[in-house]
Simulated scan of single mutants.
Amino acid sequence: MAQNPRPADTTSLHPAALPLGKPLKRAFFDRSVHEVAPELIGATMLFNGAGGLIVEVEAYHHTDPAAHSFRGPTPRNRVMFGPPGFTYVYRSYGIHWCVNFVCEPEGSASAVLIRALQPTHGIPAMRRRRGQEDERSLCSGPGKLCEALGITVKHSGLPLDAPPFALHARAGNVDVVAGVRIGITKAADLPWRYGLKGSKFVSKPFPA
């Protein structure tokens, strides 16, 4: 993966100083999940006006035994087999909601799990939903960010380029790092987790 030179230190910017890039349309996701995933780092994800910079994601390809789509369509994962640019929301371990962005042409059933955000918008509302003040802990995990934003399974199958969602491309250069995925037992050696280098808002630090 090619990385842009002169990375911007977005981790130290005040939220008000973070510019929004151009809106991301569904066509952005009609590509290999391995192209989309790293390009989402530094993009802004908003849900009903709350959200922030995407600082950590994981890619899941349909040929990947860790992907929910690996064994074919089910009532739960059928949205993954549809067109790109839509949400796939599932409950993890019966406790936490997790949001994914469906990628690749219809039928591929590949997606990017959004693992962590750096809060920039709607922080008071996120604090109320999460019941805590520390910004670093508001969205530092896929379940945490869904709770902070109020995303549940009823939002599965929604388009990413229409309200209540809004996605904006990253503004400026970022330094993207990669590592193995977290909390899985199958294909656990694949380096398909991507993050913003040096970010304090990721769910787990990347190895040096």
Rank of each mutant, 00 (worst) to 15 (best):
S137D: 11
W192M: 09
A43V: 07
T63K: 06
F28D: 03
K186Q: 07
A27Y: 04
V55T: 07
G51E: 13
F81Q: 00
R26T: 05
P163I: 00
T10Q: 03
I151K: 08
R71Y: 12
K186I: 00
D64L: 09
I114T: 13
N77I: 04
D175Q: 15
G49C: 03
T44E: 05
Y194M: 03
P124E: 14
T74N: 01
C146I: 03
A67K: 02
P83F: 01
P84H: 08
A2D: 09
E104Y: 07
G94L: 06
D9V: 04
E35C: 07
V174Q: 11
P23I: 00
V180G: 02
V79H: 02
A188R: 14
C103Y: 02
G42K: 12
P75W: 00
D64R: 11
V89Y: 06
A37D: 06
D9W: 00
G150T: 09
A162R: 14
N100A: 03
V112C: 00
H61T: 09
L40D: 11
N48H: 15
L53I: 15
S156G: 07
Y88M: 11
N100L: 05
A109F: 00
A50R: 15
G198Y: 10
P159E: 07
Y194N: 05
R170M: 02
S69E: 09
A66C: 11
G195N: 07
E35A: 14
V57Q: 10
G49L: 02
E133M: 05
L167D: 05
K200I: 01
L46E: 13
R31F: 07
L145G: 10
V112E: 00
L138E: 11
P164G: 06
K186H: 01
V180S: 10
S140C: 15
C146H: 05
P38Y: 10
T87Q: 06
T11A: 15
A27G: 13
L40W: 12
P19Q: 06
L138G: 08
D9H: 03
M80W: 04
L20H: 12
G42S: 10
H14V: 09
H61R: 05
L13A: 09
V79F: 03
G179Y: 08
V176Y: 04
L167W: 13
E135D: 15
E133C: 00
S156A: 02
R170G: 14
